[in-house]
Design a protein around this nucleic acid. Structure first.
Lengths: 188, 188
DNA sequence: TGCCTTCTATACCGATCGGTATAGAAGAGG
DNA sequence: CCTCTTCTATACCGATCGGTATAGAAGGCA
């Protein structure tokens, strides 16, 4: 395997287990059976490695969200597509999702803060646009699209985090319940 | 001020800014204008400091939640009490809440994982009990109390995290909207 | 053959990491 | 006064931190 890709995979695996700060560059290259200059040749710094990891790792999810969040007159269907995009991604890239979750509420002074925020706002912007479009058909939603996007993402993340042991699998009936709860609350 | 309390406050402040791993013991004691042996006398280790920080810092919130989550036949009122307990705590202890958020989705191999999980489950258990009691009056809620608790906490945390710049203040009308969305969804 | 670019290895840098051995200051009880 | 306990300071430990200077291996190209 390409040594750059190997470093990315190794680092992601270690970061997902113990966190970005707890894993040293030395351990990454040792696990990948390489040496430090290789890593610094490809990424320049540990931060550069993190940057590449997040940017390239989140690209598939963003791409999937872009199409899934296209509002076509039926919000329920769009929400289902978005939820599927998230859960499908979480199934296929559990390490990335776990690592991403660990950075979600990053302290503002942490070196990963800007990266984590930019990832989150990219996702959030797509969902906000979806809710904003839907608000043209559902008047009561007007002006609430930002919170809707926040809450929807948070609900998904909490569900994924709850299934953090072993594989990430959320079955169809549970998905339906999640969507129903978000759309219609807990009473109905 | 008591040097133990001073160390706790100083550490919390630094942890909330840059995260547990990014702040060294040396920096904590230097900021508190003390020395390492004092810290190790009071807490034994950096992990012991973290333990004391989380245990003692979360006690008021748990206490408030215990009474707030008592179901007395009106779930709406109970939810409002719980939300107020969270937001009131977040206003009074913004540093602690920010730090707590940063540990919420801690990687499972991180040294703070067990502590963070035990804190979360303690809160979650209270809310689960509340939803379970309410399910006796609302049949459709039966068997869903665990997810309800997860989602409710997540929604609150996402709202708090969204107001992470400066003070944490969520006004009354916004609180009503949050509760309404959780209880009745986005359509009604 | 020789050259140039790309990548990787050896060995090392100063700084900081969490943690501690030892001793001194300070107050309480006698 | 002395002693005991509690707390804090000086100085230090080995290990690891992120990062790098230098040189060698490897492949394309002439």
């Amino acid at each position: 395997m390409d040594s750059r890709t190997l470093l990315l995979k190794t680092a992601l695996n270690l970061f997902a287990q113990r966190g970005y700060d707890s894993v040293g560059v030395q351990e990454i290259v040792a696990t990948a059976e390489l040496t430090k200059p290789s890593l610094y040749h490809h990424f320049g710094s540990k931060h550069g490695l993190l940057d590449a990891l997040l940017t390239e790792g989140s690209a598939p999810l963003n791409e999937a969200l872009r199409t899934a969040s296209a509002y076509d007159g039926n919000l329920d269907v769009a929400l289902e597509r978005v939820l599927d995009a998230y859960l499908c991604f979480a199934e296929n890239a559990p390490d990335f999702y776990r690592f991403w979750l660990s950075l979600l509420f990053c302290p503002p002074g942490h070196e990963a803060y800007r990266l984590a925020v930019s990832l989150f706002t990219a996702q959030s912007a797509l969902l906000e646009r979806m809710f904003q479009s839907a608000a043209q058909d559902h008047g009561n939603m007007k002006g609430r699209h930002v919170r809707y996007a926040y809450v929807f993402i948070s609900v998904i993340n909490s569900v994924v985090a709850a299934n953090t042991g072993g594989e990430i699998r959320i079955e169809a009936d549970q998905r339906r319940e999640i969507l129903h709860q978000f759309s219609h609350g807990i009473y109905s």
